[in-house]
Design a protein around this nucleic acid. Structure first.
Lengths: 121, 121
DNA sequence: GACATATTTCAAAGAGTACTGAAATATTCA
DNA sequence: TGAATATTTCAGTACTCTTTGAAATATGTC
């Protein structure tokens, strides 16, 4: 992954509307939701929803598919995973034991966390 | 983690300068680097570096510690991990097999990716 | 074909972000 | 104390993002 793509993705996730939006689509992966269904989960105008969906689409974080007169949106999970890998690349380079400690200390279940030390673990 | 904190973090990572900066500090975790050492890795003015470090600090992504006349900066790895967990929460809710497929299809080694389905894996 | 529905595009105002050089602050060393 | 070094703060300009209502586009239904 290139820096340009990664910054575009993080910028897309820097709006509360878009972050909520994306997390809903992550939850409803892989089936996705049509725009109207998404609107029911959020309180934004249709104009604004459309604006933010377009931004996520442009960043590559979601995909769109025509479905009759509806438009179905899906979270692009592979892109999400690649971005996480990019962010955590070479974490604690040369200090794998520190990485283990960090993961163990996290408030979140270690199962959902990346093995951020790419070195032989 | 709350939405407000997460959007602040993603916004901090949405600048190419700050993303490069943070990834360098991730690599040099847990020891960190002083500002001058960081400057050697990047080509930005000292003013601009200071500006972006402050933004990362404000977002909670890095910590700062005085060290004589130097200032040492460190990546806040636990916050990074919590943010990843927040982003991937409830991924493919109810479809764990899809999550496995996504991880397997990623261009990146599965070892560095989160187990994004929190459900019993 | 005419109408209802789903969703997007347009235009405009207000708010926030990025970059730079010069000056300020803080610490060390002689 | 005075000079040198490390880093930040300040002020100004240019640029980008967010939000909204009204109008446009596309599809399905009678």
């Amino acid at each position: 992954m290139e820096t340009k793509q990664a910054t575009g993705i993080f910028e897309a996730l820097s709006s509360d509307v878009r972050l909520d939006l994306f997390r809903i689509l992550v939850k409803y992966a892989p089936g996705g939701l049509v725009a109207g269904e998404i609107a029911k989960h959020l309180s934004v105008t249709k104009t604004n929803l459309s604006f933010h969906l377009k931004a996520l689409l442009h960043a590559g974080l979601v995909t769109m598919e025509k479905e009759g007169r509806f438009l179905r949106y899906r979270a692009n999970i592979p892109v999400m995973l690649d971005t996480i890998a990019y962010l955590t690349a070479e974490c604690c380079s040369g200090h794998p034991e520190e990485c283990r400690n960090y993961r163990a200390a996290s408030a979140v279940s270690p199962e959902v966390l990346p093995k951020c030390c790419s070195s032989g673990e």
